[in-house]
Amino acid sequence: MLARLHNDHKHIAILLNILKNKQQRLQHGEAVNFNLIRDIVEYMQSYAEHSHHPLEDLINEFYIQTHPEEALEKQLGEEHHNLIESSTSLMSTLNLILSDVPVQNETLSQALKEYVEAQRNHMMYEEGKLFPIWEAGMTEAQWQEVADRCQEKLICDPLFSDDDNLLFEELKEYLAKADD
C-alpha cells in the first residue's frame, strides 16, 4: 500500500514539474497549451482527490484508531481539503480561459505557482513525516487490514497505468513525447 502511494507521488511530481514549467512560461509571457494544463488538473481531481488522497485518509484514520496513545495531528485531512479547494479554483480559471473569457496571464501564473507549491509541500509532509510513522508503527497484519479496507477506494491510475483507457489520451501522448 505504501509502495503504491510512493509511486503515485512520483507520478504527481512529474505532472507538477510540467505545471511549473508552464507557469514559468506564462510568467515570461510565452504561449502555453491551456488544454494540457487543464488535463493535468483534471487528472489531479479525478485520481489524486478521489482515490489517492482517500487512501491516505483511510490509512491515517486506521493508524489513529490503532495507536490512540500517539497524538497524530489532523493536518492530513485539512491539507487534502485545501488542495481540493485549490484545484477547483484553478479549474474554474482554466475553464474561463478555454471559454475565451479574458483572464490575465499573471492571475493564472500565480494560481499555478501556488497550486504547485501546495502540492509539493503536501507530498513532502507525507513523505517526510506521515509515511515513516505509518511504516514504523504498523504490523504486516495491520497493513493487510488497511489494504482490505482500501479496496473500494482503489482505482486504476487513468494516466500512468498500462490499460487502454482513453481518458487523458492527449496528456499521455505529451508525456510519451517528453520521454523521447
Rank of each mutant, 00 (worst) to 15 (best):
V41M: 09
S46R: 12
Y43A: 10
P54M: 04
N60P: 01
E170H: 15
L96D: 09
K20Q: 14
N7E: 05
E135P: 09
A178C: 02
E69P: 01
I97K: 15
L19I: 07
E114D: 08
P54C: 04
E56C: 01
I12K: 03
Y115K: 11
D8I: 04
I40P: 07
V41G: 01
E140I: 03
G137Q: 01
L36V: 08
I14H: 09
K172I: 02
D57Q: 01
I14C: 06
Y174N: 10
D162A: 01
V32P: 08
G29P: 00
G128I: 13
N35H: 09
H122E: 06
I12W: 04
K172W: 12
Q65G: 07
I40Q: 08
S109Q: 08
C150W: 13
V101E: 03
F62E: 13
E70Y: 05
E42H: 04
Q119I: 13
L26D: 03
H52P: 13
H53Y: 05
E117Y: 07
N95K: 02
L94A: 01
D164C: 02
L166R: 11
H50W: 00
N17E: 02
T139P: 03
N82E: 08
K172H: 09
E42S: 06
E70P: 00
D180Y: 00
Y43E: 03
F131Y: 08
A147D: 06
C150Y: 13
E152N: 15
M124P: 14
M138T: 02
S87N: 11
V116L: 10
R120Y: 13
L36F: 06
D179S: 14
M138R: 09
S86G: 08
E126M: 15
L90Y: 09
D157Y: 09
S92F: 10
K113A: 04
A176L: 13
K10P: 12
E117D: 13
F62D: 12
I97L: 12
E30A: 00
L15I: 03
K20A: 15
R4D: 01
M44W: 07
L72Q: 04
V103C: 14
Q23S: 08
C156T: 07
S86E: 11
A31Y: 02
K74W: 00
Y174W: 09
N35M: 10
D163V: 02
E49C: 02
G137M: 04
E126K: 15
D162I: 08
L108I: 10
T107M: 15
L94S: 02
V103L: 14
H11C: 12
E126Y: 12
S87I: 12
Q142F: 05
M91P: 04
E73R: 05
K129P: 03
M1E: 10
L90W: 05
E106K: 14
N60S: 06
L90R: 10
I59C: 05
G29N: 01
F168G: 12
L96E: 08
N33V: 00
M124N: 14
E49F: 11
H6L: 05
Y43V: 04
S86Q: 15
S46P: 00
G137A: 01
S109H: 07
H28Q: 02
Q24C: 03
A13H: 07
R120W: 14
L94I: 07
